[in-house]
Amino acid sequence: MDTREIIVRLVLIVVIFLISLVIAMYSTYAERKIAAFFQDRVGPNRAGPFGILQPLADGAKMFLKEEIIPTNSSKFLFIVGPSLAIMTACIGSAVIPWGQQIQIGTRMYDLQVTDINVGLLYIFGVVSLGVYGVMIGGWASNNKYSLLGAIRAASQNISYEIAMGLSIIALLMVTNTLSLKEIAAQQHGWHWNVLYQPIGFLLFIVCAFAETNRTPFDLPECETELVGGYHTEYSSMKLGFYLFAEYINMFVSSAVMATLYWGGYNYPGMDWVAAHVGPVVGPLIGMVVLFAKIFLFIFFFMWVRWTIPRFRYDQLMDLGWKGLIPLAIANIIGTGLWITFVK
C-alpha cells in the first residue's frame, strides 16, 4: 500500500465519518417531520426555512445545557457509557462497500475503507459490542430505572443476536463468502439476495430493529415504565451521544441491509450507464443508488416507529425465542435443501 492509496483511504474514512454524522443529524429532523406527517401536524418549522436548521439548534442546546453527574454514580464509567455507545456506532461502517472501483487519475481505487475477509462477522461483532455502552451507562447511573433499562437492553440484545446470526448463516450458504465486497459484487444483474433469502431478510430486519433499540423494541428506554430507561440520569451532550448513537446505528444497519440483501450499489441497467458515463461517474451513480436504498430503509424505520406500538416485555422474549429462532433454523434447513436439490 503506497502513500496515494493511504491518502485515498484516509479521505474516504473522513468522508464516511462526516456523512454518517450528517445523516444521523438530519435523521432527527426527518423523524420529526415524518412523525408530524403521520400525525397530521406541521413539525419543526421555526429554525430556518421548513425548520431545516433544527438539528443545529438541537446540537447547540445539547452542548450548552448543564452537565450533571449524579453524586453516587460511578463517575468514570458514567462517562465511558455514552462514549462507547457512539464509538461502536461509528466503527460499523468501515467494511461497507460504497460503490464499485473508481478511477482517479490512472488508477483504480476501492470505495471501501477495508475489505477484511470476515467483514460480515466484523459487523456482527460491532453490533454485539454496542450493548456495552447502554449497560455500562445504565449501571453507572446508580438509579434503579437506569439499571432496569440496562438489563433489558442486555437480554434483548443477546436474544435477538441469535436470530440475527442464524439468518446470516443462511445468507452465507447462498453467498459462500464473508467479504462484503464480494457479496455486493455477486448481486450484480438482479441476483439480489432478497430474492433468494426473503425469510432471512425478514428475520434480519426484525433483529435490526431490536438491536438498534427502535420501536417496537425500545423497551430499554420505555418512558411509560422506566422514566427514561438507561439514560434517565444523563443530561447535556452525554444524552445527546446516546440519542445520536441510535441514529448512526440506524444508518449503518440500513447500509448493511441494503448491501447484504438489496443489491448494494447495483441497479438495473448499470452496465449500460457505466459504459456511457465512464469509470469515474459510473461508480458515483452506484453510490447514489446505494444511498437512495439506505434512505428508504431509514424511512421504513421511522414509518414503523410511528405506526406500531411497543411490545410488552414477555411478548418481546416470546417473539425472539419462540418465533424468530425456530423460523431462522427452519430457514437454514430450507436453504440447505434448496442448494442441494434445486440449485
Partner: peptide, 13 residues
C-alpha cells in the same frame, strides 16, 4: 466479549 461477558455483567448487575 459480545455474548458470554454480557451475560456475566447482566447477572452481576
Amino acid at each position: 466479549m459480545g455474548a458470554i461477558l454480557v451475560l456475566f455483567l447482566y447477572t452481576l448487575m
